[in-house]
Design a protein around this nucleic acid. Structure first.
Length: 765
DNA sequence: GAGCACTGC
């Protein structure tokens, strides 16, 4: 037996025994297996929902629960992988279409309707129908705890509809954190109800409103409902609001809680349902004045969980080893590995491929496929191709596979227990993305991915002790990690003036609120009493961050709304414009340089967009120029939306032609808060004297102009300004005389600098 | 000279 397996007994002995028997074949792998040192130690006890904890050495295995035994086969109800299920998130075009045409022969339709009704009755929620309706009748707010697959999202709104909650055209609104989920669930419910999507059942997501006057069941993103408060502050047209996936605690969901709790007070007939997975439900209940919790069993196959005996120093290496181990020793079934980002995923994929190559034909075929959000869609789509017989698929994924994308056939999950999390420091106004241990909730969600089609196994690359003691129960909610400028503006325009005392489930840090208020005041969106100004009211109409909104509104006076809308749209697609595949780094970089125009990154983005438009939105053009088509299409959608809103804020379209200084001035009018100046070889922010650096990807990296404006500050290896624009310091006085004084825009020493001090682009070409 | 988790309006 190999090193370190001494402590094992029971079923594991057999598994490792096989390895021991490989003899010479594994010479090349000796080191690898050796490095393992029996990493799979005893698991901790304690159940966590449907996920079964397993203790290999004589541990207690809970018997098959009644639910599992009875339900058996899954998949029939939802036809997983056929576009429904809301799980293809952003991959491949799952567009139900609006309105959907369903012409079919009558007997066939009748047969299908029957089987649909059978499927509905087979869902775990069905036996609870009457009890649930009674509870909704009795209580204004109900917390519903239900696992994935219980049918709560599709069935509860239908039950309420059947019960008469939509009488008189009243709507039932159901929020989802993700667009694809809203679309696909609505499509599914429309089929079950035998109506066309967009009639009685519809959905509403950004860029796409698929509802009509007839719509009574409305699925939407949480952000969309938030925006609806602007036009209908009491949600008078809704009889029921269901906030689904509440446990995800998105920024929008959290704000909805406060707003809904508020309107529920003076709308006693409004029913509120808060639906969540098995976590936080007690907190939701407490927040809503101790609303009752209604529990519905889920439907998932059991997943055995294994922990390592000791912490793993190198989890990437441990992943690679474990994948190979599973591949060699375990029955058929695909493997899903959770890593933190693109770089790690690429490294892991390479290592796996290399070791498989080395082992050659002695190993059954192993298909290694990466997936992460920024991977081009055609490469993403590969993970959905069925695994050929005799082969095994390993999907190496980011968190995208935790909720947004569901892959059929996964039986084994490998979880190192880390994820990247964005955090925001109000003190420095800086964002950073750091690798952090994931939460227990997240670990359980990951494990659950192994039990969708059959009983599965989850290997956690950390100890059972670490799971219990080192991981947080849940992740820090987004509202405590995000810049709240846009949110504060929105709440202000809903008439909520006292944000410090707003009823948050978890309040954001005081500093973050203060900074947001401060910035809005500087932008002129709030007056000195903290009240919304006319400008602020117009800014709130635009679904972008406040500085972008200000920039757009300012573009009117500079006669360049067309250009500035493009800049705003491109900035909001966030760093995903340029594609830089590892094997073509040089080509990609030179393609990027070729887009260069004097002035800075904002103008480069404008140039990229305009060239793409000139190419006729050509996909081929995107490939040739190493630009992500997905990002440009998104920018186009954003731009069109903003363009449509220009009328609402009473701005006529204008173009500055080639006079890009006007565009730069308009940008400065929005971003004067984000400026830095070069002094003594380094940049410091103008207002806080904070040392910052131009990001090496910036077009201005080599130029180092004296005065710059930046779109955002990110802290990685250094404090970097991302998306940098060269400005003239006199513009700051022009666009923000209330904010800057002439004195602070002089050189620090008080000594007058000659004009054009510092390197300018003219000097450097 | 660095390195972009994931959503969403």
């Amino acid at each position: 037996m190999g090193r370190g397996f001494g402590g094992f007994g029971g079923s594991w002995e057999g598994v490792w025994g096989v390895l021991g028997g490989f003899g010479g074949i594994w010479d090349g792998l000796r080191e690898i297996w050796g490095g393992l040192g029996g990493i799979w130690g005893a698991a901790g006890g304690g159940g966590d929902g449907a996920v079964r904890q397993c203790c290999p050495p004589g541990g207690h295995r809970p018997p098959e629960g009644g639910v599992w035994g009875v339900l058996g086969g899954f998949g029939v109800v939802w036809g997983q992988g056929k576009g429904f299920g809301g799980d293809l998130g952003g991959v491949g075009g799952v567009t139900p279409g609006c309105p959907q045409d369903v012409p079919e022969a009558v007997p066939e339709a009748e047969r299908r309707r029957q089987s649909l009704q059978d499927a509905r009755r087979a869902l775990p929620i069905f036996p609870f129908r009457e009890e649930l309706l009674a509870a909704v009748g009795q209580h204004q707010v109900l917390v519903i705890e239900g696992e994935t697959g219980s049918g709560k999202t599709t069935q509860i709104p239908q039950y309420l509809h059947e019960e008469g909650y939509t009488r008189g055209g009243m709507k039932i609104g159901v929020t989802q954190p993700r667009r694809v989920a809203a679309m696909s669930v609505a499509a599914r419910v429309a089929v079950e109800m035998g109506t066309k999507l967009g009639n009685e059942v519809g959905y509403s997501i950004r860029f796409e409103d698929c509802t009509s006057e007839r719509t009574v069941l409305k699925y939407m993103t949480d952000g969309m409902l938030l925006r609806e408060f602007l036009t209908e502050p009491d949600l008078a047209s809704y009889s029921v609001i269901m906030v689904d996936e509440a446990h995800e605690r998105t920024l929008h969901t959290d704000v909805l809680f406060g707003l809904i709790k508020d309107i529920a007070r003076f709308r006693p007939q409004l029913k509120v349902l808060v639906a969540s997975a098995t976590m936080d439900t007690e907190r939701f209940s407490a927040f809503f004045d101790h609303a009752p919790v209604f529990r519905i069993p889920g439907r998932r196959f059991p997943v055995d969980i294994y922990y390592t005996k000791a912490p793993e120093a190198d989890y990437l290496e441990a992943c690679v080893v474990s994948v190979l181990q599973i591949h060699v020793t375990q029955p058929p079934g695909d493997i899903l590995v959770f890593l933190t980002g693109q770089e790690e995923i690429e490294a892991c994929v390479e290592l796996l491929q290399e070791r498989c190559r080395r082992l050659g034909s002695r190993l059954p075929e192993l298909l290694v496929l990466p997936i992460y959000a920024n991977l081009p869609s055609e490469l993403q789509a590969r993970i959905f191709q069925p695994t050929p017989p005799g082969a095994r698929k390993v999907v190496v994924a980011t968190n995208i596979a935790e909720t947004s994308v569901t892959i059929d056939g996964i039986v084994y999950v490998l979880d190192p227990g880390f994820c990247k999390q964005k955090s925001y420091s109000a003190r420095t106004g800086m964002e950073s993305l750091v690798v952090t241990p994931c939460s227990r909730a997240s670990a359980n969600q990951r494990a659950g991915r192994a039990g969708r089609v059959a009983p599965g196994k989850c290997f956690r690359l950390y100890t059972a002790w670490a799971f219990q003691h080192e991981l947080e129960e849940t992740a820090v909610p987004e509202i405590q990690r995000a810049d709240l400028g846009a949110l504060v503006l929105l709440l202000k325009s809903l008439g909520i003036n006292d944000l410090i005392h707003f009823d948050f489930l978890d309040p954001p840090p005081h500093e973050t609120l203060v900074l947001a208020l401060e910035q809005l005041y500087a932008l002129g969106a709030l007056n000195h009493l903290g009240e919304l100004t006319t400008l602020g009211r117009r800014m709130a109409e635009l679904p972008v961050e406040p500085m972008l909104a200000k920039m757009i509104l300012a573009s009117e006076q500079y006669g360049c709304t067309e250009e500035v809308l493009t800049v705003a749209a491109m900035l909001s697609v966030n760093n995903a414009v340029f594609y830089r595949p590892k094997d073509k780094v040089l080509h990609a970089d030179s393609a990027r340089v070729a887009f260069g125009v004097p002035g800075g990154d904002h103008l480069v983005l404008l140039n990229v967009y305009n060239q793409w438009v000139a190419s006729g939105h050509s996909l081929q053009w995107c490939y040739e120029h190493f630009v992500q088509a997905r990002s440009l299409r998104r920018a186009r959608d954003v731009r069109e939306q903003l363009q449509g809103l220009m009328e609402r804020v009473e701005i006529a379209p204008s173009s500055c032609g080639g006079n890009l200084d006007l565009v730069r001035k308009a940008i400065t009018a929005g971003f004067f808060y984000h400026t830095a100046r070069l002094a003594r070889g380094g940049y410091r922010t103008v207002k806080h004297q904070q040392p910052v650096f131009i990001h090496p990807n910036s077009a201005l990296f080599a130029l180092q102009p004296r005065w710059v404006l930046y779109h955002e500050l990110v802290c990685t290896s250094k404090e970097f300004m991302r998306q940098v624009l060269e400005i003239d310091s006199s513009w700051l006085l022009e666009v923000a005389p209330h904010y800057y004084q002439a004195k602070e825009l002089e050189d620090g020493s008080g000594r007058k600098m000659p004009k054009k001090a510092g390197k300018s682009r003219e000097e450097l070409g």
